[in-house]
Design a protein around this nucleic acid. Structure first.
Length: 260
DNA sequence: ATGGCAATCAATGATTGA
C-alpha cells in the first residue's frame, strides 16, 4: 500500500493542486496537514469522487489534519492525548486495512515553535513529549504503525541548505532534534534516511526570496515507522515536482510504499 | 535573515507560518 503525507497549506486554496497530484500519484492513503478549514467547510465531495473515504479533524483558520483512504479505514481518533486544554487540531489516528496487514497511521502537524525561546517553543517541546507517549503506546502493540506528517524538525545538518542560517531556529535547535531522536530511540525508523542514506532532498521551500529557485529548502516532513512497519517498507520518495506546479503549497508530498 | 510570500478572517489590516 502507498501512504503519502502532504502539508497542503490550506485545503480550499490548494484543491486544484491536490486533485492533480492525487490523480498522478494515486496513493491508497493520503495524510494531510494544515487544512486551515473546519470540518464543515472542508471540500470533501471532489475527493470522495476519486474514491477516498475522508476523515477530518479541522479548525477554523489554522492547523487541521485529515486522513483520506481508498482502503478500508477504521477506528479514527482525533486529537493528541495528554492535555485536555489543548484546542489545536494537529493529530489524528486511523487504522488502514490492507490486503496483507492492518496499519495504524498517525497524521500529525507538529508545532513550529518559533520564536525560541518562548511560550511557542515550550508548547512545541511539550507537544513532542505527548507525541513520544503516543509513539510508546503504538510500538507496544507490536502491530505495524507509523507517525507521519509535518514534524517541523530538521533532523540533521544535511537536511537543510545552510545549517548556519537555521542554527537558532526552533526547527533545528538541539532540544528539538533530541526530542525527535527520542522517538527513534523507542524503535521508530525514519523512512527516508533508511532508504536514502547520504542523500540530500528537501520537502519545504519558503515562498519568500526565491527559495525554490535557489533550492534553499529543508526536510521537515517525515515518516516514522514502527519495527513491524519497517519490516514492510519497500520504498520512500519525495514528490518534489509538486512545488513547481501553479499555486503550490510550500511543502511537497512524501510517501512510503509498504508490503501490506 | 528565508526583509521581499501566501492563506485566512475580516474589513484594509492583522495574524500566522517556518
Amino acid at each position: 500500500m502507498k501512504i503519502a503525507s502532504f502539508n497542503i497549506n490550506g485545503i480550499r486554496a490548494r484543491l486544484p493542486v491536490l486533485l492533480d497530484w492525487l490523480e498522478q500519484a494515486k496513493p491508497d492513503v493520503a495524510l494531510l496537514q494544515e487544512l486551515k478549514s473546519t470540518d464543515e467547510t472542508f471540500p470533501r465531495e471532489l475527493i470522495e469522487a476519486l474514491g477516498y473515504q475522508v476523515e477530518t479533524h479541522g479548525q477554523k483558520s489554522f492547523n487541521g489534519v485529515a486522513i483520506m483512504s481508498r482502503l478500508p479505514l477504521e477506528d479514527i481518533s482525533r486529537g493528541l492525548p495528554g492535555d485536555d486544554s489543548d484546542e489545536q487540531a494537529r493529530y489524528m489516528e486511523g487504522t488502514v486495512i490492507g490486503d496483507k496487514s492492518a496499519v495504524r497511521v498517525a497524521c500529525l502537524y507538529l508545532p513550529n515553535g518559533n520564536p525560541a525561546p518562548g511560550p511557542k517553543y515550550d508548547y512545541k517541546l511539550a507537544w513532542m513529549g505527548r507525541l513520544e507517549a503516543c509513539a510508546s503506546r503504538l510500538i507496544a502493540t507490536e502491530e505495524p504503525a507509523l507517525l507521519a506528517g509535518d514534524f517541523n524538525v530538521i533532523p540533521q545538518a544535511e537536511d537543510c541548505w545552510d545549517p548556519a542560517v537555521w542554527k537558532e531556529d526552533a526547527l533545528f535547535l538541539p532540544q528539538s532534534r533530541e526530542a525527535f531522536r527520542r522517538i527513534e530511540s523507542l524503535g521508530f525508523s525514519e523512512a527516508y534516511s533508511i532508504r536514502h542514506p547520504g542523500m540530500q532532498e528537501f520537502t519545504f521551500w519558503n515562498y519568500r526570496a526565491g527559495a525554490w529557485n535557489k533550492d534553499h529548502g529543508i526536510r521537515i516532513d517525515h515518516f516514522m515507522l514502527s519495527p513491524a512497519a519497517s519490516d514492510l517498507l519497500l520504498d520512500c520518495q519525495i514528490d518534489t515536482y509538486v512545488r513547481g506546479l501553479g499555486k503550490p503549497s510550500d511543502h511537497v508530498p512524501i510517501w512510503v510504499r509498504l508490503d501490506g
